[in-house]
């Protein structure tokens, strides 16, 4: 007992001294479990997130937009790869992690259970969804677990590109024809509240947050990050002449922040519970790709084995 207590003290003192925890370092089981859950959810979100955006690649309205979108969705696949690798450093194989996604056991960001209905949704996702993700991810560049923090540094660079590209799509639509502007406003209307939900439950209802903060996995609370996102995004919307769909939104001179309305937590809980507009489709698409790819992966393994055998002979 004393040993474990000592180890825990050493572990916490490292964290308090802003030293990174590395894969071979001792860590409490709960820390490992917490991170495996968080990083794998993050990896799944990148991979499932390819689907709503991929939905528009073949319909992108210009060749330039098509190239940008292809590159963007490809980046998300790359992020998935780094993150699955980060999970592997904690002793959980990529196969196991992916199986948990496919069986529905593991979660991913609920935002990707909303459909992309028009081209403007591609702009709204880049601007709002990647914008919200960046708030979390910038914080995670300083997270206490080394491999995760390093993966996040690379990911953040690409995500900030995505956010700017998304915003640019919206800006072009907003100053385009009346129909284009309407398309942009409609996308903002539909993606605004789900984007705010991305930060998770309010601090009062976020049971794991305190421990995550103590371990410096998280460094800012859900509500703090959400407020920073709102303050920034409201101004960006004003610049391009779109309005945030929140009648309660108002600048508060005293707090120097925007006051805003209330999130519909019933909707949030519903989508998390699997009843969002596209939960079934997303999981079905991942399962289909995995099942139909099985013989491809088997062929690659079989050929590699044959080749190795021939080389040895």
């Amino acid at each position: 007992m004393t040993d474990v207590k000592n180890l825990e003290e050493i572990f916490q003192s490292k964290i308090d001294a802003e030293q990174k925890i590395e894969p071979k370092d001792w860590m409490p089981d709960a820390y490992r479990k917490n991170l495996v859950r968080q990083i794998s959810q993050h990896a799944h979100s990148e991979v499932v997130g390819m689907l709503p955006e991929g939905n528009w690649i073949t319909r992108a309205p210009s060749l330039r937009r098509k190239a940008i979108l292809l590159a963007k969705v490809q980046d998300e696949a790359g992020h998935g790869l780094y993150l699955y690798s980060a999970v592997e450093t904690m002793g959980t194989s990529r196969e196991q992690t992916i199986d948990d996604l496919l069986s529905g056991k593991a979660k991913y960001s609920s935002i990707f259970n909303y459909p992309t209905l028009t081209w403007a949704d591609i702009g709204a996702i880049g601007w709002l969804v990647d914008g919200a993700a960046i708030m979390n991810q910038v914080m995670l560049c300083r997270t206490s677990y080394g491999p995760y923090a390093r993966a996040m540094v690379r990911i953040c660079k690409e995500e900030s590109f995505h956010q700017r590209q998304g915003y640019e799509i919206m800006a072009v639509l907003a100053k385009g024809t009346p129909e284009q502007k309407e398309m942009a406003q409609d996308a903002l209307n539909r993606w605004w509240w789900p984007s705010l939900m991305m930060f998770g439950p309010t601090d009062a209802n976020s049971p794991h947050s305190a421990q995550s903060m103590k371990w410096k996995i998280k460094r800012q609370s859900n509500d703090e990050l959400r407020q920073t996102f709102i303050d920034r995004t409201v101004q960006q919307a004003e610049v391009i002449g779109l309005s945030i769909p929140d009648p309660d939104l108002k600048w508060n001179e005293e707090t120097k922040h925007y006051d805003w309305g209330t999130i519909d937590w019933t909707e949030f809980n519903n989508v998390v519970a699997g009843n969002g507009p596209c939960n079934k489709e997303r999981l079905a698409a991942r399962n289909k790709a995995h099942a139909e790819g099985a013989w491809v992966r088997e062929a690659a393994v079989a050929y590699a084995a044959k080749k190795a055998k021939r080389k040895a002979a």
């Binding site: 292809l70 696949a77 790819g293």
Partner: peptide, 11 residues
């Protein structure tokens, strides 16, 4: 895109 047999191939 998004439906490849393995992530590396998707990329």
């Amino acid at each position: 895109c998004g439906h490849g047999p393995i992530l590396e191939e998707d990329i």
